[in-house]
Computed example of a mutant assay.
Amino acid sequence: MYGMVSHEIEVNVAASEAWKLYGTLQLAKIVGEGGLPDLITKVDVVQGDGGVGTILHLFFTSGMMISSYKEKYTVVDDEKRVKEAEVVEGGYLDLGFTLYRVRFEIIEKEDEENKCITKSTIEYEVKEEAAAAANASSLVSIQPMVAIMNLAAHYLIQNHNNNNNNRGF
């Protein structure tokens, strides 16, 4: 069984500014340092510098269906402003999923240079027997990605305003 869910948020910063956060390990650092204490307790960089092949180990709060998993960046495209990561160990794979991929895209808004759209998409594939047993589609929620995008938007706007204030604007 294959499925996909996505969500978009408009952010009042240029796409290039948003990509500086999404296209690096900075977003993982913000999330891992307590940015989402009700969702994620820690994010460790297992290997890599934020490029393709980087592996992160995410730890979730108790009470979540999944306690942790490792994900690997499979796409980091600075030109298209797209980053994809796939779960490579634990988490959804332990529940019978054969694919769990998260994609972040930063989309430039036409005619509005200081606005962009952040889009998150989750693609998943689960074995039929696991899907029936666990009601797999109910395990996949875009809400954690929405929480990360909201955290990122808040960070971007706050830093954008601070940078402007520091320039005397």
Rank of each mutant, 00 (worst) to 15 (best):
Ala85Asn: 13
Ile66Trp: 03
Arg81Ala: 00
Ile106Glu: 06
Leu58Trp: 12
Val82Ala: 01
Thr74Arg: 00
Arg101Pro: 02
Ile117Lys: 09
Asp94Leu: 08
Glu89Leu: 05
Leu58Ile: 15
Met64Val: 08
Ser68Arg: 09
Ser120Lys: 12
Lys115Arg: 15
Met65Glu: 12
Phe60Pro: 00
Ile122Trp: 13
Tyr69Asn: 14
Phe60Gln: 02
Val76Arg: 14
Tyr124Asp: 10
Phe59Asp: 08
Leu99Met: 12
Val88Gln: 04
Cys116His: 08
Glu105Ile: 02
Val88Trp: 06
Met64Glu: 13
Thr61Cys: 12
Phe60Asp: 00
Gly90Thr: 10
Asp94Gln: 11
Met65Gly: 08
Ile117Trp: 07
Gly63Trp: 04
Val87Thr: 08
Ile66Gln: 08
Cys116Ala: 05
Lys119Gly: 01
Ala131Gln: 14
Met65Trp: 07
Thr121Gln: 10
Arg101Tyr: 01
Thr98Trp: 00
Thr74Met: 00
Phe60Val: 02
Lys83Asp: 01
Thr98Phe: 01
Phe59Ser: 14
Arg81Tyr: 00
Glu110Gln: 10
Lys127His: 05
Leu95Asp: 03
Phe104Arg: 01
Ile107Cys: 07
Val102Gly: 05
Glu86Met: 13
Ile122His: 11
Glu79Val: 12
Ile117Val: 15
Glu84Cys: 06
Ala130Gly: 03
Glu89Lys: 07
Asp77Asn: 10
Gly63Cys: 03
Ile117Thr: 15
Thr61Gly: 05
Tyr100Asn: 00
Ile107Arg: 10
Gly90Ile: 13
Thr121Lys: 09
